[in-house]
Design a protein around this nucleic acid. Structure first.
Lengths: 195, 195
DNA sequence: ACCATCCTTGACACTGACGTCAAGTTTGAC
DNA sequence: GTCAAACTTGACGTCAGTGTCAAGGATGGT
């Protein structure tokens, strides 16, 4: 290998992720990305071809990290604790940054009408993966019985609920409200204890 | 009054609404609006000043119409029927058009990072109004008792749920899935009948 | 030490969008 | 019928963003 890449790809993708997340896909320009990563615009084009391809690479990083952290958050002994920790992670993820960054996948899929199918498909896969991880967690023996719904239905409802939280965050920018919304859903999902 | 407006404002705003809703705020250009309304770009600037002001006018039309239809949909005798009809309206509203248009307020607030505060504030008001209408409907004497939550909490949860539906629509484009998600929430919200 | 290969750099062409403006036109009041 | 006010029209200036390209520079294998 001669003529080797002069920038650290991991670091560049990481900084690009921060930017895309903060500003959203369409409002992030290649110039912005060049400045944030310290890599010249031309080099980015040379390395990734175009903005969309670069985004897809960045989105892969986002997805892997998101799912990892989410699984970790859910890995708690009790069902209620697991759900509280899950929503805690989801909320914290959105409320990071100033102004808060919200949710990358939602911003992308809702904000862009002419969205390339490959991007939409990546986002669908991410949601499916989140749903699957929730389903798995909710199916732990001895805990599924505490749910007012089947693990399948509950997982889907929770995924949709988190998407609703994203929108509420964008509109109200009120973390307390988000927390209480999460708590409400947990209450509804967990069967009242038969004393 | 001399030198009078030559286009029908109601008609123009209506066509502009269709376009903004379909394409989203930032992806709709003044040129698009001129073509869709049949009003020259210059005339639009003359009449409204800039794109944002035009959007705010259009959004007013959207809001009034949305809230009216929603109230009408909810005005049903039984609580379950009212909620089903409400979600039916919400889903139908998003699933209109080809490609389906989704939800204007959500597209706008989620898709644009540098959103003028006046637009965000309009959207907040709309959500508050939806919540208030739900709260009112859920508080009908003899029906509030059927809810698993207070009317206040239930209304907020439903609003968030509809925002989640919007995202699900954008990602999966699957009406059946949306209907079943709505049904799930209704199930959870209505106390099991004490036989 | 050489060199082919790939990367980097900065300038460039192109496009699309916003908002402006001066000239022309329509309109209702008198 | 005249006229001033307001609207319409089409061309224009400006800016920002994408993607391209040719020239120059770095690098590792031989």
């Amino acid at each position: 290998m001669v003529g080797v890449r002069q920038f650290d790809e991991g670091e560049a993708l990481d900084k690009a992720l921060t930017l895309f997340w903060q500003k959203g896909y369409s409002q992030t320009t290649m110039q912005d990305l060049a400045e944030a990563t310290g890599v010249q615009r031309g080099s980015l084009y040379n390395a990734y071809g175009d903005k969309e391809t670069l985004f897809l690479r960045v989105f892969g990083v986002y997805r892997d990290r998101y799912v990892d952290h989410m699984r970790e958050a859910m890995d708690k002994p009790g069902l209620r604790e697991a759900l509280e920790s899950f929503f805690g992670f989801v909320i914290k993820s959105m409320r990071t940054g100033a102004p808060t960054r919200g949710c990358l996948s939602t911003k992308t899929v809702v904000g862009i009408e002419e969205l390339d199918e490959s991007i939409r498909s990546e986002i669908r896969d991410l949601l499916d993966e989140i749903e699957a991880a929730l389903h798995e967690r909710l199916s732990r023996p001895g805990e599924a019985e505490q749910l007012a719904l089947s693990p399948q239905d509950a997982a889907r409802l929770i995924v949709m609920h988190t998407r609703g939280l994203v929108v509420i965050e964008r509109v109200y920018r009120d973390e307390q409200r988000m927390r209480s919304m999460a708590e409400l859903l947990i209450q509804l999902l967990l069967k009242p204890k038969l004393s």
